[in-house]
Amino acid sequence: MLTKRIIPCLDIKDGRTVKGINFVDLRDAGDPVELAEIYAKSGADELVFLDITATEQKRKTLAEMVRSVAEKVNIPFTVGGGISSIEDVDILLKNGADKVSVNSSAVKRPELINELSAKFGSQCITVAIDAKQVNGEWLVHLVGGKVPTDINLFQWAKEVEERGAGEILFTSMNNDGTKAGFANEALAVLSSELKIPIIASGGAGKIQHFTDVFLKGKADAALAASVFHFKEIEIKDLKEELRRNGVEVRL
């Protein structure tokens, strides 16, 4: 049986990890390669690198980082952040990324999803969707969740699937940063309406939240950052508890 995936997310700027990371055994807390290796050894199923660099050197420094990670790490990883063209994706995949995620650029020009999946295959194209529930309706937001649109989350997710995305990374802006649990109701709707896998993001605070996101939210994978970076949750403990609750995991 296919297992549910646990995915730590690392924010990257100028080739370095940015969020405060509380790993006492790290020689260099800003080194994405060292951190990725530790996560791979600790039982992470996949990694996501989200690049927030806004300089002209962005493409080059990110490609170098991807290459260094691919050299050392033996689990799959996804790279996202500002990807808007076939050329952007080509460079990242050629340097060893397994998947890329596109977000705002796909909302602005949805044909990008068709072009990328036709060129590289659906399996390496993840579409990230940030959404917020406003007056009862889930609306897609852009630029890291800051800019609202009038696009309905579920309609957009369906379109994303039809255009050839391999999976969806859904972040609930209502839950992100709250540590109060994932947006399980919206996730369960997404998961039942779509055929492609759904990665849940936003709201992880304790182990119970992961159990809920798989059993109630029907997610295929769960992504989190700070609970892992600050060692509030150890991946091994998390997976053992998930297994006790009947969730299939790789242990």
Binding site: M1, L2, T3, K4, R5, D45, E46, S122, Q123, G166, E167, K195, I196, P197, D220, A221, R250
Partner: peptide, 9 residues
Amino acid sequence: LKVPQIGWN
């Protein structure tokens, strides 16, 4: 089940 199958089996 979901298609593509993505993950560890």
